[in-house]
Amino acid sequence: MTENGPVIEIRGLTKNYGDVVGIKDLDLNIHRGEIMGFLGPNGAGKTTTIRTCLDLLQKTSGEVRIFGLDSHHDSIEIRRRIGYLPGDFGMYNDLPVRTILRYLLSLSGYEDDGPMEELARRFALDLDKRYGSLSKGNRQKAGIVQAFMAGQELIIMDEPTAGLDPLMQQEFYEFLREERAEGKTIFMSSHILAEVEEVCDRVAIIRDAELQVVERIDALKEKMGKTLEIEFDKEIDPSVFDIRGVEGLEVDGRRARMIIACDLDQVVKRVSEHNIVNMSLETFSLDQFFMTYYSRPGGG
């Protein structure tokens, strides 16, 4: 048991469905006490990765270790210590939510339903209602409660905020931050970039079954650069911007627009020889980055 090593350690993980590649040669470490976002478009392999880690799918090759244990052979021991919220799940429609959650709690070998009641109160979930009568948002809350109610140290979630209203989403993010502060590790997939930007420490981006990048959110933001837009008093020669680190240059008469991935000072000094009418600098949001990233062939 490597208590100081990564909580989840994925090495060369490949999962094929017959001839179809689900995920290919994926490497990823998730550390204790961090919230790792797992970002990618639909069908990229996020759910496949998560379900393979949980031993719901048999891996084709590679290795997954959770708490230093083998994801397949030590699966029961691992599942004792993790909470999981699937992306698409159901429960017993005819039973009250409280009955279902107590049953699931008992499967985890837990007796204390105090945390369950507390979580339900926090997320305004009525435990006396039959699961089948709940709205999509309330079903999602029931899923969230069952993932956290046994106080496990690692929580894996597949698109956890699907169906939650914006206020509840904020409440959920706040809750995640508190959980992190208590030392919990969280691995969550999402296709909502703002969510990852707001709550995650690091992000892994997957596309077409392959992991593209794993980066700290703040480092990523830095790397992402800024958009600089300048208006001159007359037409400008594009060669002015022939500077290392200036990308995606668009010159339209007196206006120039570019992405700055270098020191801003260099650019400002160069353009100072010309008369500037207007200038705006905008930091890239992860959202924009994501769009740029995915629109580039080969992932940039």
Binding site: F89, M91, L104, L107
Partner: peptide, 14 residues
């Protein structure tokens, strides 16, 4: 069919 299997088998139940 009712998508319960993922939740049940994520608990420590073989």
């Amino acid at each position: 069919e009712e998508r319960k299997m993922d939740i049940i088998l994520s608990k420590p139940v073989s």
